[in-house]
């Protein structure tokens, strides 16, 4: 028939072979580091395996029942919800404001862009350790500043009290995700046609009207994508909470991801850790489906 279906002479000319070759690193990576642990976690969750008793003995839903009965589970679930929602509301507001600043022309723009991206490019654990010191119970520079300003007389013990600990964890998580969200929103902002911006100016709309009646509605799908990334990164990532508080004090900042790690890896109860970790999966799939559907529906309008 045509030349496209003929067998190429050299292996390097064979599109099927090349496609497989080029995709294999990604496929191998995903199978080895995501697929395999995922399948293992599902298997573990239906056993009562632990580091002390590494036999695969299927117990049905007994492990799930035990985890659900634990009062820490309910706290962690609520904390996860609070953590994800508040952090991402902050992220959306800050990222939209930042993107609006970054799209303008001003002197030193490159420096601001660099500084904005810094929290994102720095390794999570390193960046979070910096915050650990910044929020230290005795040497916190924030406390020092507040003391100098005469606003407090005693140290805040940011990470030592339930309320301030949760606030700190949320703030640091928001600080970490804002750069990613800002870049996503910035891309959306750049994609708004110049004619639209000009039309708004000719039609006589001021800054707030432009912002809330044109810019944000047009950005809605892309903001939804930014939120999706933010929520997934907040729910599935344990670094910030683990480094700052390890879920403490008394589980007041415990989220499902840290609890799964502490129970399964540190406590050795592999089956329970897997069950807690899997509990997040349907939640994330649900959120992803809803957000993507919303984003797509907006686009069709």
């Amino acid at each position: 028939m045509t030349s496209t279906t003929r067998q190429p002479r050299y292996l390097g000319d064979n599109p099927r072979f090349l496609a497989g070759l080029f995709m294999s690193p990604a496929v191998i990576y995903i199978i080895a580091l995501v697929g395999f642990p995922f399948v293992l976690a599902i298997i573990y969750a239906f056993t009562d395996i632990s580091t002390g008793n590494p036999d695969l003995e299927f117990v049905g839903l007994a492990t799930f029942r035990r985890v659900l009965a634990d009062p820490v589970f309910r706290d962690s679930l609520w904390n996860t919800f609070l953590f994800a929602v508040v952090a991402n509301v902050l992220v959306v507001i800050l990222a939209t404001a930042l993107a609006e600043i970054l799209i303008r022309d001003f002197k030193g723009k490159w420096l601001v862009r660099f500084l904005v991206l810094l929290p994102w490019v720095a390794p999570v654990s390193l960046a979070t350790i910096t915050w650990l010191w910044t929020l230290d119970s005795i040497f916190s520079p924030i406390d020092w500043l507040l003391r100098q300003a005469g606003l407090i007389t005693e140290n805040m013990y940011w990470l030592g009290r339930p309320g301030t600990a949760m606030t700190s964890v949320i703030a640091v998580q928001a600080w970490r995700i804002v750069p990613l969200a800002a870049v996503i929103v910035l891309a959306g902002l750049i994609a708004i046609p110049k004619d639209i911006t000009d039309a708004v100016a000719v039609d006589g709309a001021g800054f707030w009207r432009r912002m809330f009646q044109v810019t944000i509605p047009l950005l809605a799908p892309i903001i939804a994508v930014a939120v999706l990334f933010g929520v997934i990164l907040t729910i599935s990532d344990m670094s910030v909470v683990y480094v700052l508080t390890r879920g403490g004090p008394t589980n007041s900042t415990q989220v499902l991801s840290t609890w799964a790690f502490i129970k399964g890896i540190e406590g050795g109860a592999l089956a329970q850790g897997a069950a807690v970790a899997l509990f997040l999966l349907p939640v994330l799939i649900g959120i992803t489906a809803v957000v993507l559907r919303l984003a797509r529906r907006r686009e069709v309008l």
């Binding site: 046609p193 004619d195 639209i196 000009d198 039309a199 100016a201 000719v202 039609d203 006589g204 709309a205 044109v214 509605p217 047009l218 809605a220 907006r298 309008l301």
Partner: peptide
């Protein structure tokens, strides 16, 4: 003066209708 104070109206190449 800014565009809105000039009593002009403009039609753009792409029409620039607000899609939402």
């Amino acid at each position: 003066l800014p565009p809105r104070a000039r009593r002009i109206a403009m039609v753009f190449q792409s029409y620039a209708l607000y899609p939402h």
